[in-house]
């Protein structure tokens, strides 16, 4: 086990590189083994057995956009919560109260979103 901060990340790097080599190696190997005979019928996209109509772009519901926005808010919140939780014991009561206010504000935002019915599907 490589010691310390630096070593632990080098090992992760080695792990990632081995993973990539494994996957790309498999892809390269199968390239040698498999047939490759693309025909028109084969390269058509699947549409329940009939020839596809129009382009591959389907309309997506605009609601997804609201969820993406909310995701950013709460993911950033999680980013702030983890360091706080790690040093919770050292920081003591003041940091606890501050965090209650922080989570409270964001909980209010979630409540607002629920009351505005933007989280309703259909």
């Amino acid at each position: 086990m490589p010691e310390g901060y630096f070593g632990s990340y080098v090992t992760i790097g080695v792990f990632a590189v081995v993973g990539l080599v494994l996957v790309f190696g498999t892809l390269a190997l199968t390239r040698l083994l498999r047939p490759n005979v693309p025909t028109r019928a084969k390269t058509l996209t699947y549409e329940s057995g009939i020839d596809p109509i129009g382009t591959g772009w389907a309309q997506a519901n605009v609601r997804y956009y609201v969820f993406a926005l909310l995701f950013v808010i709460f993911d950033v919140e999680a980013v702030f919560l983890f360091p706080w939780a790690t040093v919770f014991e050292d920081l003591g009561t003041q940091a606890f109260v501050e965090m209650v206010i922080f989570i409270g504000v964001l909980a209010l935002a979630l409540l607002y979103a629920i009351k505005k019915r933007v989280l309703e599907w259909l």
């Binding site: 996209t45 549409e47 596809p52 591959g56 389907a58 997506a60 997804y64 969820f67 993406a68 995701f71």
Partner: peptide
């Protein structure tokens, strides 16, 4: 470049996040 994968991809990205 196909309809069903696009719908599935968007749907699952919303679920996963």
């Amino acid at each position: 470049g196909s309809k069903y994968p696009l719908l599935g991809g968007i749907r699952s990205s919303a679920q996963l996040i």
